[in-house]
Design a protein around this nucleic acid. Structure first.
Length: 468
RNA sequence: GUGAUUGUAGCUCAGCCGGUUAGAGCAUCAGAUUGUGGAUCUGAGGGUCGUGGGUUCAAAUCCCAUCAGUCACCCCA
C-alpha cells in the first residue's frame, strides 16, 4: 500500500453510510413531527453577508465566525486606497473586514430573521418554519462539540401568543416519544423575572453579569454562585433575597405565587408571571402533563436576544441539555423590521444522536439497505445475473451484483461484510437446470428454487427485510 | 482566547532509564478449501517513529521549536 496523506479539519467529520443511516432516521423523525405541527421547511445559504451576521450575537459569536476571503485580487484595491503603514494599525478585525465580506452562518436564527425581514411583505404571519442545516463555529472542539454541526430549529415569527411556547412543549414531547427517549423534562423561566429581580435589588445595570452567574448555578453549586455574586458587589441582604428565590419549591403555580409575593410591586415580574400562567393554561389544554415541564428560576440561557420565556430540555438522569430556546420580542429589529415577535427552539441533534447511540435506541433493521447479492461464476452466469438484477429491481427488491468476479468465495465474503441478507447463486449447474440457489446469509441455509416468483416470496417473507 | 495531554503500520497500541535489522493485536491480501461468507491455521505486504533543529560515537527514546490530534475552561448545540 502506498503512503498517502489525508486529513479533515479539526472538528469536522465524515459520516460513513452506517452513520448516515442513523442520522437520517433521527432527522426524518424530527421532520415528520415538525411537519405534523405545521412548520414549513426552509433552507438558507451556508454563507451570508457579514453585514447580516455581524453585530447580532455578541462579540463571542463573531470571534467564532469563519470568514470567507473575497474572490479575485482583493489586495489591489487595498493597495490603492490604504497606506501600508495604516493597514494593520487597528488590528485584525478591521483588516479582515477589508478582505472578507461573507461568512459562514453560526446559527439558524439570524438567517431566519433575515429571511423574515426580507420577505415580510409576502409571508403570512404567524410564519412557522423548521430548518435542519449545518452551521459552523471556529471554536476549539471537545467531546460532543464540533466546528461543523447540524442545528434543527423550529421558530414562529409574528405572534406574541404564549400558545406557541406551549405548542413547542408538545413538539418536544412528540419528538422524544417517537425516539423512545424517556424522562425528559423542560425547564422554563422568563427573562423578565431575572430582569425584575435585578431591578428590585437596584442592580439593573449588572443584569447580564448576574444572569450569567446564576445560569451556572446548577453547574457550580449554590455556594460558589453566592460567592461570585458578592464579588461583583452584591450586598449580603440582596444575596439572601436571591437565595430565598432559589429556594422556592412546589408546583408550577405555587412557585409563581411565592415569587409574586416576594416581589409584589415589580412590573416585569408580574408580566412574566402572567405570561407563565398563560403558558401553563395552554399547555394543560393541549394535554401536557405536570411532570413534563417545571419552572427553574436559575435558567437564563446565554443568548442576548431572548426577552421572554426561555426553555431548556434535559434528560433527568444525565442532566444534559438536549433542546434550548425561547422568545425574542424583536427578532427582526436589527434588519429594520420592528414589532415581529419570535419564539423558537433548537434540538441538539448531535447530542441526541449520542444519546440514541448510548441507549441503543436506533432501530436494528435496515442496516445494510441491500437485500440480495447475485453471484455468478462465469460470463454466461453474469449476463443471466444482470438480467435477473433488472427483474428484482422492477419488483422493488434491492439487489446488487459484483461484475467481473467469478470466485464464489469473494462474493459471499462481500455479502457477509455488507450485511446483505441473501445471495442468489447462478452457477453453471443452476443455468443448466434453469433454477437458482438462494442462500440466507443470516442462517446459512440454502435451497434450490425453480422460479423467480419463489425467489421473490422468500425474500419478501424475511422478517429482516420488511423495510424497503 | 487559557490550560493539560498525546503524536510509532490502514486502526488500537507496546517499545521511551539512549545501544544490532522498530514490535504485537486487529484489518488487508494470498493460500490451506478450483461451487460457499463468519471460525481456525499458514504466509505475505505495509514504517524516512508528526515535522525541523540540537545534544551524542550512537536518538523512536533526551532537549528545544513547530505542526497536528484529544480533553478541560470560556462559550455553546
Amino acid at each position: 500500500m502506498s503512503k498517502f496523506q489525508t486529513s479533515i479539519p479539526r472538528g469536522t467529520r465524515d459520516f460513513p453510510p452506517e452513520v448516515m443511516i442513523k442520522r437520517d432516521y433521527l432527522f426524518e423523525i424530527l421532520k415528520s413531527v415538525f411537519e405534523k405541527y405545521s412548520y414549513l421547511p426552509l433552507e438558507t445559504p451556508a454563507f451570508e453577508m457579514l453585514s447580516v451576521l455581524e453585530g447580532k450575537g455578541g462579540d463571542e459569536n463573531e470571534k467564532l465566525m469563519f470568514r470567507i476571503l473575497n474572490s479575485g485580487d482583493f489586495l489591489q484595491p487595498l493597495a490603492q486606497s490604504y497606506n501600508p503603514e495604516n493597514l494593520f494599525k487597528n488590528g485584525y478585525t478591521e483588516f479582515s473586514s477589508l478582505i472578507a465580506e461573507k461568512g459562514l452562518r453560526y446559527d439558524l436564527t439570524i438567517p431566519f430573521a433575515r429571511f423574515v425581514a426580507m420577505n415580510h411583505a409576502t409571508l403570512s404571519f404567524p410564519f412557522k418554519r423548521y430548518q435542519i442545516q449545518p452551521v459552523w463555529r471556529a471554536d476549539r472542539p471537545q467531546k460532543g462539540r464540533y466546528r461543523e454541526f447540524y442545528q434543527c430549529d423550529i421558530d414562529v415569527a409574528g405572534s406574541k401568543s404564549l400558545f406557541y411556547e406551549a405548542e413547542i412543549l408538545v413538539v418536544i414531547r412528540n419528538v422524544f416519544e417517537m425516539l423512545n427517549i424517556k424522562q425528559v423534562t423542560t425547564f422554563i423561566n422568563h427573562r423578565k423575572i431575572l430582569l425584575g429581580v435585578t431591578q428590585a435589588l437596584g442592580m439593573e445595570n449588572k443584569f447580564f453579569e448576574i444572569t450569567d452567574i446564576i445560569d451556572k448555578m446548577n453547574k457550580i453549586g449554590m455556594e460558589k454562585t453566592l460567592n461570585e455574586l458578592s464579588t461583583i458587589g452584591m450586598t449580603q441582604e440582596n444575596i439572601s433575597t436571591i437565595t430565598g428565590m432559589f429556594s422556592i419549591f412546589g408546583s408550577f403555580a405555587e412557585k409563581l405565587l411565592t415569587l409574586i409575593n416576594l416581589f409584589p410591586d415589580n412590573k416585569n415580574i408580574s408580566e412574566a408571571v402572567s405570561d407563565l400562567n398563560m403558558l401553563y393554561n395552554y399547555a394543560k389544554a393541549m394535554g401536557i402533563e405536570e411532570n413534563e415541564f417545571q419552572i427553574d428560576f436559575t435558567l437564563a440561557r446565554g443568548l442576548g436576544y431572548y426577552t421572554g420565556v426561555v426553555m431548556e430540555t434535559k434528560i433527568k438522569e444525565d442532566a444534559i441539555s438536549i433542546c434550548g430556546g425561547g422568545r425574542y420580542d424583536d427578532l427582526t429589529g436589527v434588519f429594520g423590521l420592528t414589532g415581529v415577535s419570535g419564539v423558537g427552539i433548537s434540538f441538539g441533534a448531535e447530542r441526541i444522536y449520542d444519546i440514541l447511540e448510548e441507549k441503543k435506541l436506533f432501530p436494528e433493521t435496515d442496516k445494510s439497505k441491500v437485500s440480495v447479492l447475485i453471484a455468478s461464476m462465469d460470463s454466461q452466469g453474469e449476463i443471466a445475473g444482470v438480467r435477473l438484477l433488472a427483474e428484482l429491481r422492477k419488483k422493488q427488491i434491492r439487489a446488487v451484483i459484483l461484475p467481473g468476479e467469478s470466485k464464489l468465495k469473494k462474493q459471499l465474503a462481500y455479502a457477509d461484510k455488507n450485511n446483505i441478507l441473501f445471495v442468489l447463486i447462478l452457477g453453471p449447474d443452476e443455468l443448466a437446470n434453469n433454477s437458482f440457489t438462494l442462500k440466507n446469509m443470516t442462517t446459512g441455509e440454502q435451497k434450490i428454487v425453480g422460479s423467480l416468483e419463489e425467489v421473490y416470496t422468500n425474500i419478501s417473507n424475511n422478517p429482516d427485510n420488511l423495510k424497503q
